[in-house]
């Protein structure tokens, strides 16, 4: 078998070698670079997606927090308003109760007073009668003479009425 010289140019060999390099370029592009690039791109996309997800979750959490906080503040306000209203209502009711009680007490006092008055009047009237009877009896015994009891009673009644009126004005 023959060998080539150390330097021997052959145009076909040069062209074959050129084509070899082009073919190897295509092979590497198709079988090494394309799959690896695809995987790298997919990984980059996944990382981006995860970052986006995390950002979204964070945003949502913050929005939730804000919502809760506003809700909480609203609830506190509402509770304050309710308390205030309840206080006002309670005060009003208390006043009413007090007013009612006072009214009732006044009514009771008034009736008691009027009853006492009526009692007093009745007692007075009774006393008038008894005093008249006693005075008539006393006068009868004193004078020891028979007089018209009816006439005397009338006389004493009118007299006592005079006393009662003067007594009324005294009190």
């Amino acid at each position: 078998m023959q060998s080539l010289g150390v330097i021997s140019l052959n145009i076909w060999q040069i062209i074959i070698s050129l084509a070899n390099l082009v073919i190897l370029y295509l092979i590497l592009r198709k079988f090494l670079y394309a799959p690896v690039r695809k995987v790298l791109a997919a990984r980059a996309a996944a990382v981006d997606r995860q970052y986006a997800d995390a950002d979204k979750a964070k945003e949502e959490a913050q929005a939730d927090r804000a919502a809760w906080e506003s809700k909480l503040a609203g609830a506190r306000d509402e509770a304050d308003a309710l308390l205030a209203e309840a206080g006002v209502q309670a005060e009003r009711r208390g006043e009413q109760v007090i007013a009612d009680a006072r009214e009732k007490a006044e009514g009771i006092v008034r009736t008691a007073k009027s009853e006492a008055e009526a009692e007093r009047r009745r007692a007075e009237a009774e006393m008038h009668g008894q005093i008249a009877d006693i005075s008539a009896l006393l006068a009868e015994k004193l004078i020891e003479r028979e007089i018209n009891e009816a006439d005397h009673k009338q006389l004493i009644d009118s007299f006592l009425a005079g006393i009662g009126e003067s007594g009324d004005t005294d009190r």
Binding site: M1, S3, L4, G5, V6, I11, W12, S17
Partner: peptide, 27 residues
Amino acid sequence: IEGALIYFTIPMPLQDLIISESQIHSW
């Protein structure tokens, strides 16, 4: 000190196409 071993030669215009060790090894 010699160049590549020639396995076979294909007649071609301009110059014969020589398939030598270089080609085989490159492939």
